[in-house]
Design a binder for these strands. Structure first.
Length: 574
DNA sequence: GCCGTTTTCGGCCCGACTGTTTTCAGTCG
């Protein structure tokens, strides 16, 4: 774990405990904000500490600088230790249970000595919990449901899964109530890699009727709330979907509000307050008078800002950048001209080279690179040198058929546990594109192996650089900072792998890579022709990483791509 | 605990829904 992660988690834990202790919510929020800022910091906090620039970080004041300083110089933090020694400390895990907040947890602890889920179940079953003030049958039932959900292990889902769910719910809803203004909001609209719950927004006058249709959808396995303007259901596997209804002239304000992020919105509200305005989900108000609300751009305009793309709305400097008129011209899906990491039936893909090529061509692409696995990837039917050459011949034949499309000969070559590549250089030299990646030896010198691969002049792209698989596997222990420096030096590109379980590089890493001047390649790693669809998630991640089209090599034409290869400081031509 | 062209003290985003309440607290986002 990095120091950033450790300190971020310490602050968050302190916030949890303070909240249970009934401390001022503002103090609790101060710790939470600092925790988030440090977690998302695109650099090692130790560097800032040494440079004595910690206090420049938003939300980090004198008191927190002191605590960070204490931790980095001594390895401990007195405040944290005190908090962890308090009687409230064991209760923080209970906060993850839905319908159970700090007030209730503290009350159960004080009156009944509850410190664990088992304790809660015990006092629920023996009737003691019902004796507490404000504890009615329904509240007990909701807590019981919350515990069941928690024990089922429900947590965040990938954006790919969220996409499927939301499309299905939308289709069911539109079938029963076709309305023009229905749209997803929330972290899904911001294209976050993982989604906690889903938000939908509808413009309509008959709120209660809309909500009634929504909570009665076949997809709804449980109804959590049903009011006049807000409904909340649970669908498949416990995912919560909220729907809000607003009037048409409020739609922009509501879309802005429900897209978030919370941190972004809090900052906007602060700006509004200073301007003597008030902003909520119904509009921007000067006194009683609405000055904006129908469309989202108008809401930002009322605050003196240009419209900010949803993917940037994380309070990572986008508001200040917008105020300065410096927002990036973010990459769009239409900018993508090819895919540089595609599999076929030669290894573990499910479609032929011709099928993959034709599908890409129909999508308007100009090229793809066939990058099947190399010989050591036994699990994935990796190619021997002989089969790689056969494949090359097939690609040559296929290219004869196209005048407007190019199939590039490539390979996803394994970086072996000893740091060598799985094919010798004289073989790699016969290929148009070489993608290198780690598929084994996840704990062995990963950084050194990747550095060595980057130094090989034939390697154009490092695929899925951190190896993280959402909900299955953490990233390798890799020092990305030195990887970025080396990639900038040789001109090798790093991949944003668009598969929703990967999205690797992440948004934050993408922004960091860019800051180092590293080229990016947004690939799908498609194993079927449908796999190209995943590019939208890669694009979303790139946009969240503030990437513009010129940062991304597969926005280039085929000629520009080849020129890029020749221009690399330490690429194959030198 | 943070922060400051309204403040170095006194603010700190704002509202919906639920449940247990005769006017509001807790939770959530």
């Amino acid at each position: 774990m990095t120091n950033n992660t450790i300190i971020s988690e310490m602050f968050n834990r302190i916030a949890d405990i303070l909240e249970i202790q009934g401390e001022s919510g503002f103090k609790v929020n101060a710790y939470r904000r600092a925790s988030r800022v440090i977690e998302e910091l695109g650099e090692d906090i130790e560097q800032r500490w040494q440079a004595k620039t910690l206090h420049e970080l938003p939300g980090i004041g004198d008191a927190l600088v002191k605590k960070i300083d204490e931790f980095l110089s001594t390895g401990t933090m007195k405040k944290y230790d005190e908090m962890m020694a308090s009687s409230a400390a064991p209760l923080v895990d209970l906060l993850s249970i839905q319908n159970l907040g700090p007030k209730t947890v503290a009350l159960m602890h004080q009156k009944l000595g509850v410190t664990s889920i088992d304790d809660i179940i015990r006092v629920m079953d023996n009737g003691q919990l019902a004796t507490l003030p404000g504890m009615g049958d329904k509240k007990l039932e909701n807590i019981r449901k919350g515990i069941e959900l928690f024990q089922a292990g429900q947590s965040r889902i990938t954006i790919g899964k969220a996409d499927k769910i939301i499309q299905h719910v939308l289709a069911e809803f539109q079938e029963r109530m076709p309305l023009p203004d229905v749209t997803p909001a929330g972290s899904f609209r911001r294209m976050k890699a993982t989604i906690g719950d889903l938000d939908l927004l509808v413009a309509a006058e008959n709120g209660a009727e809309v909500i009634d249709v929504f909570v009665n959808l076949p997809d709804a396995t449980e109804v959590l709330a049903a009011g006049d303007t807000k409904g909340s259901i649970r669908v498949d596997k416990g995912i919560q979907v909220d729907l809000r209804v607003v009037k048409k002239n409020e739609f922009g304000a509501a879309l802005q509000y429900f897209t978030g992020s919370q941190a972004h919105n809090v900052k906007l509200r602060g700006i509004a307050r200073k301007m003597g305005l008030k902003i909520n989900e119904y509009g921007v108000f000067e006194g009683e008078r609405a000055v904006a609300g129908a469309d989202e751009a108008g809401v930002y305009q009322a605050l003196g800002l240009p419209w900010i793309p949803p993917e940037l709305r994380e309070d990572r400097g986008e508001i200040e950048t917008a105020q300065a008129g410096d927002l990036p011209d973010l990459i769009e899906q239409d900018n993508i001209r090819g895919d540089l990491h595609v599999h076929t039936t030669y290894s573990d893909g499910h479609h032929s080279i011709a099928e993959m090529a034709e599908s890409a061509r129909q999508r308007g692409y100009q090229y793809i690179a066939i990058c099947d696995h190399s010989r050591s990837a036994i699990y994935a039917n990796g190619l021997s040198i002989h089969r790689l050459q056969q494949q090359g011949n097939e690609i040559d034949d296929l290219n004869q058929r196209f005048s407007d499309f190019t199939v590039l000969k490539g390979c996803e070559v394994d970086i072996l546990p000893d740091g060598e590549l799985d094919f010798p250089n004289d073989i790699l030299a016969t290929l148009d594109i070489v993608v290198a990646s780690i598929h084994s030896g996840f704990t062995q010198n990963v950084t050194q192996r990747i550095l060595k691969a980057i130094e090989n002049p034939f390697v154009d792209i490092i695929a899925h650089p951190t190896g993280r698989l959402y909900t299955k596997r953490d990233a390798y222990n890799i020092d990305l900072d030195v990887v970025f420096k080396k990639a900038a030096e040789t001109g090798a590109a790093l991949e944003i792998n668009s598969h929703p379980m990967r999205l690797d590089l992440s948004d934050i890493h993408t922004r960091q890579a860019q800051a180092h001047g590293v080229a990016i390649s947004i690939n799908t790693d498609a194993h079927t022709s449908d796999g190209y669809d995943y590019v939208k998630y890669g694009i979303g991640t790139a946009r969240r990483g503030w990437a513009e089209a010129h940062h991304v090599i597969n926005t280039f034409t085929i000629d520009q791509l080849r020129a890029w290869q020749r221009s690399r400081p330490k690429g194959r031509t030198q």
